[in-house]
Nucleic acid binder design. Sequence first.
DNA 1: ACTTACCGTAAGTCATGGCTAACCGAGGGC
DNA 2: GCCCTCGGTTAGCCATGACTTACGGTAAGT
Lengths: 98, 98
Amino acid sequence: MLDALGDPTRRAVFERLRKGPLPVGEIAKGLPVSRPAVSQHLRVLKGAGLVRDRQDGNRRLYSVDPNGLETLRAYMDRFRDEALVSFKKAAEREGGEG
Amino acid sequence: MLDALGDPTRRAVFERLRKGPLPVGEIAKGLPVSRPAVSQHLRVLKGAGLVRDRQDGNRRLYSVDPNGLETLRAYMDRFRDEALVSFKKAAEREGGEG
DNA sequence: ACTTACCGTAAGTCATGGCTAACCGAGGGC
DNA sequence: GCCCTCGGTTAGCCATGACTTACGGTAAGT
């Protein structure tokens, strides 16, 4: 999941889909890599559950997968909550003895 | 930022700090890599603003940086919001013409 | 049917970066 | 002062994976 977002180019691909579905060629346009490279990134993103694809005549439209987005958010929130709790505990401990 | 969380081992290091501050040796214990490897991961995490460190006598205590956590959350939320908005738009378009 | 546009896949190259081993400095206990 | 623990840094090795080139397959247009 986060593995997939580790690569900057792949993150750029992902972020390009933020505004809505795009065909592969359109995604590749403006990126400093070839179209096959984009295809490979899309495969990884799809494997991670972050994007979906749908056939549209000649082209293939990729879009952000809302499920993946929620999973990501859930992971982040959980982590954040636990970290903040232990932070608060540490602060209390500090206050109690300081 | 997300680059730093791309590596599984580094993510494991990061997640170990979720419960509170830990010295390097303690983090390395239980991980399948050597202590220097952990040190290197911590350097990257620190560079990304995800962890902080504080000297504690002989040891060095690492902990999650709440600022980094907020930055991460802000990035995620913004992305998510934009994606969901364009999703809703697409659904309306679909509904309008279907 | 021929051509053109779109795209996924395979093979091969090459740089990135994660890991270990070895070294060094700093702090604390005796 | 000596020793031991803790941990950051470096050098060097090596696997991972990102990228390009070349190819094949499908859909639309004429």
